[in-house]
């Protein structure tokens, strides 16, 4: 299985738009690729667009949380954008609230958040 989700670079932001039903291996590959790309491109922000995803199960949910944590350690902020309402309701009932993951309703709002975050970086805990 050689399918990989493309990671696009726009300025100092990496954009990932997941457009297909992901196999677990592709989820792991994406997490790997993103971590590498953050370092390779000195990205300051990551946007993961999941608007095309019909489900987010615990495996994908965990990848989102782990990716957000890894990128934070590498100096980049992650925003997950475009979650469908039915997916949000299902995720919470499943027991995953993605507490450590910044989310935004759509790509525009997500990019806007990252721009503001770069102007005034949040105080580190």
């Amino acid at each position: 299985m050689s399918d990989r989700v493309p990671v696009l670079k726009i300025g100092d932001i990496l954009l990932v738009s997941i457009q297909i039903d992901l196999e677990d291996q592709m989820v792991l590959d994406l997490q790997d690729d993103l971590s590498q790309q953050i370092v390779a491109t000195s990205a300051r922000g990551v946007v993961i667009d999941i608007s095309a995803l019909e489900i987010v199960d615990s495996f994908v949910g965990r990848m989102l949380a782990t990716t957000a944590a890894i990128s934070r350690v590498l100096g980049a902020e992650t925003v997950v954008v475009g979650m469908r309402p039915a997916v949000a309701m299902t995720l919470v009932e499943l027991g995953l609230s993605l507490g450590g993951v910044r989310t935004a309703l759509n790509l525009e709002l997500g990019l806007g958040y990252l721009r503001r975050a770069q102007v005034s970086p949040p105080a580190s805990p």
């Binding site: 489900i55 987010v56 199960d57 469908r84 309402p85 039915a86 309701m89 299902t90 009932e93 499943l94």
Partner: peptide, 11 residues
């Protein structure tokens, strides 16, 4: 919503 819940459970 129920489709999404069932498919997620199946996953």
């Amino acid at each position: 919503v129920n489709q999404t819940k069932l498919v997620t459970a199946a996953s």
